[in-house]
Structure formats: C-alpha cells, structure tokens
Design a protein around this nucleic acid. Structure first.
Ligand SMILES: [Mg+2]
Length: 656
DNA sequence: GCGTCGTGAGTTTTT
DNA sequence: CTCACGACGC
C-alpha cells in the first residue's frame, strides 16, 4: 500500500495507526519494521505507538532510520562479508580527513576540488551501487579514472581500519543479503510487515533493501509526497514513489486530500507555488481551518535588520493576545550559516532559542579530536585517528616525525601505533619528543584496557583526554582563553553524552555502542539540555521536514540564497521549489517571509534581489511591508501600562 | 625541524 | 567565522 498525499494530511499518523492496528489484530510486534527519515522521527513514532498500545509492544517493534537499522544488521552479520563486527562508523569529518590524506598520496591535490567534492562524488557512486571497477570503463574520462582510484583506496583504507561510512551501512547490508540468501530469508521471516515514512526521499540502495526484504509477499506500507522530495542531491529518487505500483504489483494507492494543519491562505499559497513544477502528481488539497492571516512578505534593508526584525516580531506576537509560547515559533532558512545572525538577534532580545538537527557539533575540531582519541584507544589499527591526535597538543612530533613514521610504516607494514613503538623509529626523534611519544602510547594503552572492561566509559574518556594532556593543552592550542573554554565545554558535552548513554543503556553498555549512537545521532541528541525547554525553533528547511509550527518565518528569500546560487546556475530549480513548498507547509496559522536588500557576503556588502519564489505567491493572499509596518505599534493603553510598570520598578522603595 | 602567527579563501541541504 | 596553508622566528 502506498499513501501518496500532500503536506499535513496525516501520512505519518497513518503509519502509527497501522502499527497499532497490526498489533491489535494479532501480529507480533517483533515482526514489524518501521523506517523513518530521522532518529527523532523514530523516537516520536515509538512514543505515539506507546500511547496507542503499551510500552512493552512499542519496545519490541523495530523502529529506526535506514542507517540505524542497517547498523544493527551489520553488527550481527557483517562477518559473513569478511569484515569485523567490531566496526566503527566514520562520520563526515573523519571521511574528509581520510580523503585529504589519500588525495595527497595520489597527487590529487590542487585539482580544483575540495575533499568534500571528492567525497560527494564517491558517495553518489556508492549509492548508485557502483564499485570502483565499474567506473573504469573503456570510455571513462581521466577524471573518472582518478576518482575510481581514490574511491578504491578510500574503501581499502577505511575497511582496513575496521571503519564503515554511512553509505557502507546500507550498501553492505544489501550485499550481505544478495550474497547470502539464507540470511535474507531469515530477515524476511523476522520483518514481515514493513512501514516506510517519507518514501519520496529513498534512494536506489534503500529501495533495493526494501524490495529484497518485501520479497513476493510485499507487505509494505509506504507513505510520502512527491512534492516534498528534497534530497535528490543525496541520491534520493522521486521515481521510487512514482513507480511504486510497478515495483510492488498489486499494491493499492491511497490519496488523502484533507489538510489538517494549515489555514486555507497558507495552503493556497503553497499549492500555487508547487503548481509551477512539471511532472508531478497533482493533488487537490483542501483545509477546513478557515482563512486566517495573510502571508506577510517583509523587506528589510540589511541582513542584520532582517534578523532583528524576526526577533522583534516574535517578541511582539508572543506578547500578544494569542497566548503563544516560544515553541510556537519556528525560523527556517536555506543554509546553516544563516542561523548565526538570528542567534545573535535572539540573544540580544533575550529570547530562548534552539537549533534543530545539524551536524556542526560533530564537525567541530575539538569534538573530532576527542572522538579521535577514543577511536585510537579503542582501535589501535585506526591510523587516521592516531595521526590526527599524535601531535595534539604539540609533542614535538611535526612534519619531519610524520614523514619518518610513514617511511617506517612502508618498511614494516605495521599499523601506525605499532610503528610508533619501534625503537628504530624513536631513535630518530629528539629525546624530548621520544619521551612524549612513549607517554602518549602508554596513555592510549591504559585507556584501551579501561575501555575493554565493564566500567564507566565516560570517566575513562575523561581520564584519557586528561592524561594525554589534551584538556590542559587546550589553552596552548587555541589562542584566546575564551575560545579554549568554549571548546573545553564542547568536549565535556561529548563526555556527558557518553555518561548519558550509559545511564540509558545500563551497565552492560559499551563504548562501541556509544560511538555508534553518537555517529548516527544529530546534534540535539548529542548535546544534553538542547532537547527540552520552551524555546523558538531555528532550523534549516531540510531539518524541518515532517515538523509543524503555528507561526513560521522563512528568512533570506533572495536570489542566490533561496533558491541557492548553484541551483540557479545549474537549472535545478524544481527541487529548490519543493524545498520552498516544504517550508511554507510547516506553518499552521501564520507565515512571515523575509529578505534583505543588502547583505554581507564574505567581506562585501552586496545588493540583493528578492527570490523568484516570492513572485509565485498569489498576490491576493500576500501583504508586503517593511519591518516597521509589520510590527504593530502597541495600543495606547498597553503603552501606558508599560510606562506605569517601569515607573513602579524604578521607583524608590516605600518599605522602611 | 617545530610551533606560532598572519593571511586569505571559501561557505547548500544530512544520515 | 573558521580552517588551511605559508612565512618566519626560535
Ligand atoms: Mg510526516
């Protein structure tokens, strides 16, 4: 069954209700697999199932992202493919480091491509199920051949260190099932009922995984909306949802047309925007929620004024008669960096805020350093982590020491940590550096043994970072004291996440389980205290998928920003428009769209033009204004009351 | 040969 | 703003 329906029609609810229905009609919860797009969505789904059924049943259902579910499969069975079940997961920052090293070795530096570019290319090939050899066709360009080489050594090195990247999690499960039909059969027996949310954003591998698991029985329930496909850049294929009936013959397609979320104004605006896209399933969405406010388009003079306006406007609306709390407001943007200015404006106005999703925490240098210390201790074969932390803080092991290290590795073929321990190598170092090196190795060794035991690994992490001189070295690594303290705080967030993991999982939890979870999580889960509390939500449009808010601000609606410059240049506007559609349809009651006439880009102040998406809104539903006009002046009596209250606050106390 | 400081360049979206 | 890289002083 496919539920193909527009935004706000209750698609996700269909899945939870169906799960409850299945269990009530006698299906064992263990036989149900529900796949969501994010970990947060998985958690929410489990919560809702718990409400509909009970905690026991909810706990026995498998609910998770493709990546989380696949990681579990590989933990049990990846040895069938000749890889270790003790694998670690390499997050993006880690992959970038590896590509950088390999690009250097293969002479691929300075080719006008960043490591991230290479990585994106490799990831695209992997998700299309292409092996390096598949790229080496007779008519392959030199460029493609270079990519094949890089791809091949990347995988070899990664897997040689018992590490998998995100794509591997999916690709290797598929390979596992293809090469071992008996295993596949066992998983088919296990997962007899498949439910998939956000189906429009599945990619080729994910589709094949589902098809393999469904088999002939095809007991699959997918929900999605082709208009909300926004991950094409990551290999997602809208074709999966458009071809559902061919892929799963006999499947029913159900359409839902009532939107329970938005006012008719918001819905009509969104409908008109998305109507400009070709090749889509046209849907006639309607809402019984009434007309509501007009869509407000606010033109600010500068990007700072734009951010200030958003903060003031929220303050204004929150104080109004609507009885709004902070979480009723969401501010959405195209790119992560746009959050900076908004955060600053919110801090100035003392408005509490919270970023949704994001990967920036894991990509922070100090967090990656801390993770690398733990990786290097847990897995002595992890050369990349070892190299990363070898001279952090400075131990006198600079370029020359690393060059000699590589030489000896070439001679012996040992992993780096073993080379570092060689007397022949150490003899080439300055005495002070050799001493520091031996201490470094001893600390890693102690940590390794500590992690192998059953103890509290959060404390072991702290001990490791402390004994290695990393925590105390922060003040030397980073110029300013404030910077060092900030970074220290982030490292303690990492340690706190470890403690938190152990609290939840109990004493049987181990460091590998924690590292896996930490790699798969988003920042909100990584950072304690980011989770709860009444606060305005800041989010990229991508990360806001599946969420809804009473009042939504969409900022930076300018040519080049939203739609993004590259999408404009490469004529990839359809997905940008879907993204705008997703943004619009997050709103229940009110929409405020903003842009700035001038904006600082890099170092220059640049004149901006309004987004072409603004032109596609129905004129009769939109009101244009400046920040000043958008914020209602307080009525006189409110102003009087305010003045009176201030007077009272500052009046001399009448108490003796 | 190591470490620090200054300069300049680059910034979509995420599991 | 943050990172990578190169120049320069130790
Ligand atoms: Mg949904």
């Amino acid at each position: 069954m496919l539920v193909l329906a527009g935004a706000g029609t209750g698609k996700t609810r269909v899945i939870t209700v169906r799960i409850a229905h299945l269990v009530r009609s006698g299906v064992r919860p263990e036989h149900i697999l529900a796949v969501t797009f994010t970990n947060k969505a998985a958690r929410e789904m489990r919560d809702r199932v718990r409400e509909l059924l009970d905690a026991d049943a909810a706990g026995r259902i498998t609910i998770g992202t493709f990546h989380a579910v696949c990681a579990r499969v590989l933990r049990r069975h990846i040895d069938y493919l000749g890889l270790s079940t003790r694998f670690g997961i390499a997050a993006q920052g880690y992959q970038v480091g590896l590509i950088q090293a390999l690009a250097g070795e293969l002479g691929l530096r300075d080719m006008g491509r960043t490591p991230k570019d290479w990585l994106r290319e490799i990831s695209a090939r992997k998700n299309a199920l292409l092996q390096p050899d598949d790229l080496r066709t007779a008519d392959a360009s030199p460029e493609e051949l270079r990519l094949a080489d890089l791809y091949e050594s990347y995988e070899k090195r990664l897997h040689g260190m018992d590490l998998l990247d995100f794509d591997d999690l999916l690709v290797l499960v598929l390979r596992l099932w293809q090469e071992h039909p008996r295993l596949l059969n066992a998983y088919r027996q296990q997962y007899r009922f498949l439910l998939v949310d956000e189906y429009q954003d599945t990619n080729a591998v994910q589709f094949k995984l589902l098809a393999a698991l469904a088999g002939d029985r095809a007991n699959i329930c997918a929900v999605g909306d082709d208009d909300q496909s926004i991950y094409g850049w990551r290999g997602a294929d809208v074709g999966n949802i458009l071809r559902f009936e061919e892929s799963f013959p006999g499947a029913r397609v159900i359409r839902l047309e009532q939107n329970y979320r938005s006012t008719t104004t918001i819905l009509q605006a969104a409908n008109q925007v998305i109507a400009a896209n070709p090749r889509r399933h046209v849907k006639s969405l309607w809402s019984a929620r009434g007309e509501g406010e007009k869509v407000l388009v606010v033109q600010a003079e500068t990007e700072t004024a734009e951010a200030a306006f958003v903060a003031e406007s929220i303050l204004d609306r929150a104080g109004g008669a609507g009885g709004r709390v902070w979480t009723d407001f969401a501010v959405l943007f195209r790119s992560n960096h746009q959050s900076r200015l908004l955060e600053h404006a919110f801090r100035q106005q003392r408005i509490p805020y919270r970023m949704v999703g994001g990967q920036s925490f894991y990509q922070r240098r100090e967090v990656l350093d801390a993770v690398s210390y733990v990786f290097a201790a847990v897995n002595p074969a992890d050369d990349l982590s070892t190299l990363r932390i070898l001279n952090v803080p400075p131990r006198g092991l600079g370029d020359r020491a690393v060059e000699r290290l590589k030489y000896w590795q070439g001679v012996t073929g040992f992993p780096l940590q073993r080379v570092l321990a060689l007397a022949e190598y150490q003899a080439e170092l300055a005495p002070s550096a050799a001493t520091a090196l031996r201490e470094f190795l001893a600390v890693l060794d102690r940590a390794r043994r500590a992690f192998a035991g059953q103890g509290d690994f959060a404390r072991h992490i702290e001990a490791l970072l402390s004994e290695a001189g990393y925590l105390s070295g922060l003040v030397r690594i980073y110029r300013s004291r404030a910077d060092a303290l900030d970074r220290r705080e982030n490292i303690y967030e990492f340690i706190g996440a470890a403690a938190n993991h152990r609290e939840r999982r109990g004493p049987s939890a181990d460091i590998r389980g924690f590292l896996e979870e930490f790699a798969l999580m988003d920042d909100n889960d990584r950072i304690e205290g980011r989770k709860q509390g009444d606060a305005v939500i800041l989010s990229t449009v991508h990360a806001a998928k599946g969420l809804e808010f009473p009042v939504v601000y969409i900022t930076g609606l300018e040519q080049g920003l939203f739609p993004h410059r590259q999408a404009l240049e490469e004529h990839r506007l359809d997905e940008e428009r879907r993204l705008f559609y997703v943004a619009l349809t997050r709103a229940r009651d009110a929409l405020v769209l903003t842009w700035a006439r001038r904006r600082r880009v890099h170092r220059d102040l640049v004149r901006r033009r309004p987004s072409l998406f603004l032109d596609s809104l129905p004129a009769n539903l939109v009101e244009h204004c400046t920040p000043k006009e958008a914020i209602r002046p307080a009525p006189p009596e409110v102003a009087d009351e305010y003045v009176a209250r201030m007077r009272e606050m500052f009046a001399p106390s009448r108490d003796p």
